[in-house]
Computed example of a mutant assay.
Amino acid sequence: MRIQEIIVVEGKDDTTAIRRAVDADTIETNGSAVNQMTIEKVKRAQETRGVIIFTDPDYPGEKIRKTIAAEVPGCKHAFLPKEAAVAKSGRGVGVEHASPEAIIEALKDAQLMREDIAEEITPEDLITAGLVGGPGAKERRIHLGKLLKIGYTNGKQLHKRLMMFQVSKQEFVDALAAVRQEEARNG
């Protein structure tokens, strides 16, 4: 499978993992302190072929994602569930630990984030749904993020991510129902 866009990853081990899964070109940030030269490469890539940001599902990866997205509008975003990115040893989380199948799935689901959209889901909806504060909220957000393919967020960031990915009220309600159904099954 050939990926047209250039994939932004954190390091060379991520590039190796990506190339085991798909035929693609990458730009490596080499850490969370993304320098101006890297930003310029990503801008050029976005102008010519498009970009998919595919960073680790952890705090530094999210920091890199936000930095690049702020500097280079219009990038797509691919998210890997944390459990798909855990090292076999159990120590470490990253794209480099993911199976080729998990990488392919994440890239297929890459989405464009937008900032200029109408608010269909309010912060109050998130509180009412038990996604912010209270027992089990984190687990619900993790499951919701997987179902909607928007990645994990903390309570403060969930609303923004739902808006950026243009998740409709109906998609949200359906995904939340699936989360609740899973909770009922697991007791």
Rank of each mutant, 00 (worst) to 15 (best):
residue 65 R to P: 03
residue 65 R to H: 13
residue 65 R to N: 09
residue 65 R to S: 11
residue 67 T to F: 00
residue 67 T to V: 08
residue 68 I to Q: 00
residue 69 A to V: 05
residue 71 E to A: 15
residue 72 V to H: 04
residue 72 V to D: 03
residue 72 V to C: 03
residue 73 P to Y: 04
residue 73 P to H: 06
residue 74 G to E: 10
residue 74 G to S: 12
residue 74 G to L: 07
residue 77 H to T: 01
residue 79 F to A: 13
residue 79 F to N: 11
residue 81 P to E: 14
residue 83 E to Q: 11
residue 84 A to W: 04
residue 84 A to S: 13
residue 84 A to C: 14
residue 85 A to F: 15
residue 87 A to Q: 09
residue 90 G to K: 02
residue 91 R to G: 09
residue 93 V to M: 07
residue 93 V to L: 06
residue 93 V to C: 02
residue 95 V to W: 00
residue 95 V to A: 05
residue 96 E to D: 10
residue 97 H to D: 14
residue 98 A to S: 12
residue 98 A to E: 12
residue 98 A to G: 13
residue 103 I to H: 00
residue 104 I to F: 06
residue 105 E to R: 15
residue 106 A to Q: 03
residue 106 A to I: 04
residue 108 K to A: 12
residue 111 Q to W: 02
residue 116 D to C: 06
residue 116 D to L: 11
residue 117 I to A: 14
residue 117 I to W: 10
residue 117 I to H: 08
residue 119 E to Y: 07
residue 122 T to K: 05
residue 123 P to R: 11
residue 123 P to G: 08
residue 128 T to F: 14
residue 128 T to Q: 15
residue 128 T to D: 15
residue 128 T to A: 15
residue 130 G to I: 01
residue 132 V to R: 02
residue 132 V to P: 05
residue 136 G to K: 09
residue 138 K to F: 02
residue 140 R to M: 12
residue 140 R to N: 09
residue 141 R to N: 06
residue 144 L to P: 01
residue 145 G to T: 05
residue 149 K to T: 07
residue 152 Y to C: 02
residue 152 Y to S: 03
residue 152 Y to E: 13
residue 155 G to S: 06
residue 155 G to P: 04
residue 157 Q to D: 14
residue 158 L to K: 00
residue 158 L to A: 01
residue 161 R to S: 02
residue 162 L to R: 05
residue 163 M to L: 15
residue 164 M to E: 08
